[in-house]
Amino acid sequence: MLGLLTATVLASGALAPKPASAADKITIMVGGLEKQIYLPFMLTQRLGYFKDEGLDVELLTEPSGVDAEDELLAGAVQGVGGFYDHCVDLQAKGKFIESVVQINQAPGEVELVSTKHPEIKSPADFKGTSLGVTGLGSSTNFLTQYLAVKYGVKLGDFTSVPVGAGDTFIAAIQQDKIQAGMTTEPTVSRLLKTGEAKVLVDLRSAEATKAALGGTYPATSLYMQTSWVDAHKAETQKLANALVRTLRYISTHSADEIADKMPKEYLVGDREGYVKALADGKAMFTPDGVMPEGGPETVLAVLSGFSKNVKGKTIDLSKTYTSEFVKNAPKS
């Protein structure tokens, strides 16, 4: 874990990042920088858009979004590249964070099933299985639990196994440590290419997500502690400017052109597969960073479907996101 930045203790006892000047570094931790669902963060860095805004942004990576969330709450980072659903989940625990740029309008996740287990034909067959997630308490865990409950499987009837993504997820499938699991591109394409897994539930498009979850499910976002945003509106606006500019770049450039900007190691030796997956999945990115209409309500309904933490709680969705900064971003 990262060492804590200098912090002040609030009256509530919570830690807040030290008030920073515009010249201070802003650190954003992403739940897997190499994943295509989080591509806009590294792309913004590679295009120089953070620097164009006069920002010194450091990007860090963690295998699971829940670990990044922990660093934010500890005050060790100022922002997280992670799923919006954490904003809802944390409010139920009395902690206020908000999405300031909504990057994805679909999760971009896929529930894969090992081809060694043809008996698993839908989430209704999850009973008695070990299911891979990036981390316990992660968004992949949230979505897996929801799908199981939706199909009549109780939470205690299967085991969630934290296996990360990429090579560690693939190894877990190969070694039969998990029989199915939720992951993203490029891991999905790697396993489909070798024939070691097949798609069970596809959440890579808005249409498929609506069919599986009942509505639009906003996923990847830049979320930050509300207290930090309120105290650093100028810096937050600059971050929004840079990321919205990147979202426009994604919508106006080909997957091939975008892949040229990414670190070569992110392509995991298969540029053709990476480009195809990105071309197929580009529609998951919002064009402007604005929260999709009805999205927060879907997220709340999904979490309420299985989470004892959220079920029955009064959640003020208006405090889980803001469109103020993305709507003020330059139009060109």
Rank of each mutant, 00 (worst) to 15 (best):
N241S: 14
A242M: 02
E297T: 07
V290N: 08
D316T: 01
A277E: 05
R248K: 15
K327R: 14
L278N: 01
V275D: 03
G289T: 06
E293V: 08
V302Q: 11
A240M: 01
E235S: 15
F306I: 09
I258E: 09
A259E: 09
L267G: 07
K261L: 12
S304C: 05
K233M: 08
E257A: 14
K327Q: 15
A255C: 02
S304T: 14
A234G: 03
L317K: 01
E265H: 14
A234E: 15
F306Q: 08
R245T: 08
A255H: 02
T322H: 00
H253F: 05
V299A: 11
D256R: 09
G273N: 09
A259Q: 06
D256P: 00
Y249N: 11
K282T: 08
V244Y: 12
K308L: 09
L239A: 03
V326L: 05
L247G: 10
R248N: 09
D260Q: 13
T252I: 01
T320D: 03
E235R: 15
M291R: 04
L300T: 07
M291E: 13
K311H: 11
E297W: 07
Y266A: 10
V302Y: 08
E297F: 06
A279P: 02
S323N: 15
L303K: 13
M262R: 05
A240D: 04
S307Y: 03
A231E: 15
G289V: 03
A277G: 04
A240K: 01
E297M: 06
V326T: 11
E235N: 15
